[in-house]
Structures are given as structure tokens and as C-alpha cells.
Design a protein around this nucleic acid. Structure first.
Lengths: 180, 180
DNA sequence: AAAATAGTTCAAGTTTTTTTGAACAAACTG
DNA sequence: CAGTTTGTTCAAAAAAACTTGAACTATTTT
């Protein structure tokens, strides 16, 4: 048949088709969440693998630069989406993906949503102050009304986040062998 | 405070400070949700106003181009964040902001999240097919495992969205004399 | 029907974000 | 300690996203 290929015996040299498909899925997901696509690629690759990978392996498999790999891994660790391990007798750090959705969502909310809510509080206070300074009765009333609406939204969003963490955490990894 | 100002008698000529603050808030919010900042500005302006505004007024107040205004208004209508009305005896369309958070969230999920979930289904099917074609027993098992995890995530996300709509809908505008 | 008004489209220009790679720092090795 | 390996940083290049404005369609007015 074919001298090469067949079963892909070299584990760290090239990606399987399904791995490329998964990586591409995470690339798109990262984009939708406002993260650089390289973050998605790195996470996707690690997600596919059982064994932890070192940075230079990631660079080679994904064909991305040292800088991207370094920055991507740092951000993913910060989000709790990736953690590092040390193989005994090897100096390099190696990385694995966090596969529990609850942890991923939790990290994302902690790093992205929570800061926005905090900034929101500050902005609302500023708006309230500006509104209260208005001289014209009608304008002030309109401004007060708008500030009230925004405060209500802010409160609702703050309420929502804990629920999201709960609901996603419910049944994490699939209950092992389970047919649809 | 402000040399001019006093009561700002020209309604369609300039923005109040608080309006600028609100517009800026929505500009930032739009960014975080992956929407162009001009969309946020337009929504923010309409959100501040009691009276509907025409496109050329929006262009002038925000200093944005015809193209941005047109495209922004179209997208916002598509999201259900803005609706148009016709003032009697005026040919121009005029726009108002939807201020019910439930509607805004619903529209956003419908336009952004739902399509992603659908594409996700397709991608998962593709991955499943690729995985099942694998010859090597070990690789296939790993692939199957990953596909199961992703399917579980997908299912959880699908479950989450209805809850989000519910929770946000709970107490919409602040409990106040609501007219509508 | 010509002129004026409203609004859309899209190629080109601008701005912002992401990626790259060379220079650097830190930690190990012989 | 000099050399090697591992990983970080950041200025510049590349890519992606957004905005602009002129040309265009459609509708209304004179």
C-alpha cells in the first residue's frame, strides 16, 4: 500500500484529522468569547492529548511562534484552563488542559465577567453624580430614571452569575458509560 | 462646573455629560460582548432619550458616518435592541431603544448563542465521524472520550440558555409604575 | 419627470488586535 | 564558570475588525 502513513506511529509529529477538527472548534470558540484564536488552538491541542505537552512541542504541532505559545499558555493558566506539571527528569514545564466545564466557566467568569461588574459599579456611581448635578428638572428626572434602569440591570447581572456557575456545575463530566 | 450648559435648551445639538457617560458605558459593554463600539454608542444614545431619533440626528450627535449609523441601526434592530417608529408627517424613520433587559438578553442569545450551538452540533458530528474512522484502537478510544466530553459540554450549554432567559426575566424594569 | 430626501452598500482607509522573532533573563549542566 | 536549555518580553510586522464616504436604489415632492 503506502510506505508512510497508515497508522501515524510518530505521536508528537503531526496532528490527526480529528485533532485538527477539535482545535479548529476551540479556535472558533475562543473567537466568540473574545479571546485570541491562538489561545483556542493551544487549549484545543492540550484537550486532545492524554500526555502533557511542552511548549516547544505545542509550537511545532500548531506552527505558532514562541511568543504566542508563551503568552497563550500564561493566559490559559491564569484562566484556570491549563495547568502545568513537571515530568520527572525533564527540566521543561509541561501542560495539560482542564477538562471540567465547571472550572472553565468559573475561571472565565472570574477573570472576565467579575471585573466588568466591578467597573460597572464605578461607572454607575459616576453617572449618578452627573445626573444629580443637572439643573433642569425634566432632564434630571430623565437621567435619574435611566440610572435606575441601569442599576437594575447591574443587579440582575450580579445575581445571574452565581446561577450560571451552579447550573453548569450540575453534572460535570458525563456520567461515564451512558447512551444518549 | 461648565461654562456653557446651564440648561441645554437645544435638544438635538449636543450631549449632556451624563449622556456621554452612558454612551461610553455602552460602548465598553458592546466591546465586551464582541460587538462594534459604534453599536454601543448608538444604543446608548437612544437609551438616554425619551424621544425617538432619526438617523441623521444620531450621526450628528455621535459624529459617526452614514455607513456606521445605517449598519449599526440595522444590527441593533436585528438584535431587537432598537425599534423604529414613524413620526406623523415626517418621512424619516426614527429609532428608540428597547429598555427591557429580558428582551435584550433574549435577542442577544437568539442571534449570537443559538447559532453557535447549532454550528456546534454540526462540528461535533464531523468530529465523531473522523474519530470513528481511526484504525488504531488506542487513538480511537481517546478520540471517542474527547467527543463524549464535548457532547456533554454542548448539552450543558444548551440547558443553560433557557435558565439565563428565565432568571434575567424575573423582575425586569425596577418595580415601579410601569407604563406600556 | 426632475430634484430632493432617506437610506443602503461596499471598496478603500483607518484603527485595533494579534502574532512574530530577536534580545533578554533565569535556571540548569558539565 | 561558560555553555546550553527553557521561557519571557516587547517593538515591529501582519492580520483582523471597524469606519468612512461616494455611488447607488428607492421613495417623495414640486
Amino acid at each position: 500500500m503506502n510506505a508512510f502513513s497508515v497508522t501515524n506511529q510518530s505521536p508528537s509529529k503531526a496532528l490527526d484529522d480529528w485533532e485538527n477538527a477539535v482545535i479548529d472548534l476551540f479556535l472558533n470558540a475562543a473567537n466568540s468569547f473574545g479571546l485570541p484564536k491562538s489561545y483556542g488552538q493551544i487549549y484545543g491541542l492540550l484537550f486532545c492529548r492524554d500526555q502533557p505537552l511542552a511548549m516547544d512541542e505545542i509550537m511545532e504541532l500548531l506552527k505558532i511562534s514562541k511568543g504566542s505559545a508563551s503568552q497563550g499558555l500564561r493566559a490559559l493558566r491564569q484562566l484556570g484552563a491549563v495547568s502545568s506539571v513537571f515530568a520527572p527528569g525533564d527540566r521543561r514545564e509541561r501542560y495539560i488542559a482542564e477538562c471540567r466545564l465547571r472550572k472553565l466557566v468559573g475561571g472565565f467568569l472570574r477573570e472576565q465577567a467579575d471585573p466588568h461588574l466591578e467597573k460597572g459599579t464605578a461607572r454607575l456611581n459616576q453617572i449618578e453624580k452627573l445626573v444629580n448635578n443637572l439643573q433642569d428638572e425634566g432632564s434630571r428626572k430623565r437621567g435619574v430614571r435611566r440610572h435606575e434602569i441601569l442599576s437594575g440591570w447591574h443587579r440582575q447581572m450580579s445575581r445571574l452569575l452565581p446561577w450560571v456557575k451552579m447550573i453548569v456545575g450540575k453534572s460535570d463530566r458525563l456520567p461515564q458509560k451512558n447512551s444518549e
